[in-house]
């Protein structure tokens, strides 16, 4: 990752978020370690799909670990923390995937959190139409964000905005969360105006991309639900549990 330091044009909130950001190679090593443990999956299940499900679960666990270290979030009671994560878990997973592809920088393949590169032709041949369509739609967003020159400070700030995107009326601690939402919006606006003055509407363009992240995450949840109904998901799957949990 690029080193970032404070200074003019770097809002304090973004600086703190950059310092909280986990190192990709540490996340990769942890997840690879978990995946090497014997699977408790169904014997009739294709090994590759079961592995992808565990990979997605472990990626979400890394996201929960990140959220627990985040300022404001760590001050909240568990009920509010759960409400926030239940609202945005699929968006955080989609955005995590999309940003990894921006860093990967190859249009013809996708990079998994474990470091493996999968050709899009392989996805087309083996993934099934629902997953293939999801991957292609995510690739379109990757191109859009690449064209917008999304950088790491903007990525961490957008991730924080996704985490705090729940309407405060569903939370016990309204004021703390509302304050976090306002501070993150201001930080992102200030940062983009200072670092990309030639692109006056970058802030609005980035927020529009979050609408697409939300829409993609809905499609991803439909895919998961379809797999669940077809009895293809592993037992004790975290994402299915998130999918079935009642929203606030």
């Amino acid at each position: 990752p690029e080193p970032f330091s404070g200074g003019p044009g770097m809002p304090e909130l973004i600086l703190q978020l950059l310092q909280l950001e986990p190192e990709e190679d540490q996340v990769r090593a942890r997840i690879l370690g978990c995946l090497q443990e014997p699977a408790k999956g169904r014997p009739d299940q294709p090994a590759l799909f079961g592995l992808l499900c565990r990979m997605a679960d472990q990626t979400f666990i890394s996201i929960v670990d990140w959220a627990r270290r985040c300022m404001v979030f760590k001050e909240l009671e568990v009920a509010d923390q759960m409400a926030l994560l239940q609202n945005c878990w699929s968006e955080l997973l989609v955005f995590d995937h999309v940003y990894r592809q921006i860093q990967h920088g190859k249009e013809g393949s996708i990079l998994l959190v474990t470091g493996q590169e999968v050709e899009l032709s392989t996805v087309a041949a083996q993934a099934g139409s629902m997953l293939h369509s999801l991957v292609l739609r995510a690739q379109e967003l990757v191109l859009q964000l690449h064209a917008l020159q999304l950088d790491r400070p903007e990525f961490v700030c957008l991730k924080f905005l996704i985490l705090f995107s729940l309407d405060v009326k569903f939370l016990n601690n309204h004021s703390l969360v509302k304050d976090a939402q306002e501070k993150a919006n201001t930080a992102l606006l200030d940062y983009t105006l200072c670092h990309y003055p030639h692109c006056g509407d970058k802030f609005q363009q980035l927020l529009l991309c979050l609408v697409e992240v939300r829409s993609l995450s809905m499609q991803a949840k439909e895919y998961l639900y379809h797999k669940h109904l077809s009895n293809e998901m592993p037992r004790n799957n975290l994402l299915i549990e998130m999918l079935q949990a009642k929203q606030t």
């Binding site: 679960d57 472990q58 929960v64 759960m82 004790n236 549990e241 949990a245 009642k246």
Partner: peptide, 26 residues
């Protein structure tokens, strides 16, 4: 124990709850 109330995701609760030291096995 990470037994959760109806509708509450038990694994997520276990990941977040400060009173639980053991991480859930997923």
């Amino acid at each position: 124990s990470c037994r959760a109330a109806a509708g509450r995701p038990a694994i997520l609760y276990a990941l977040l709850s400060p009173s639980l030291t053991a991480r859930p096995s997923v």
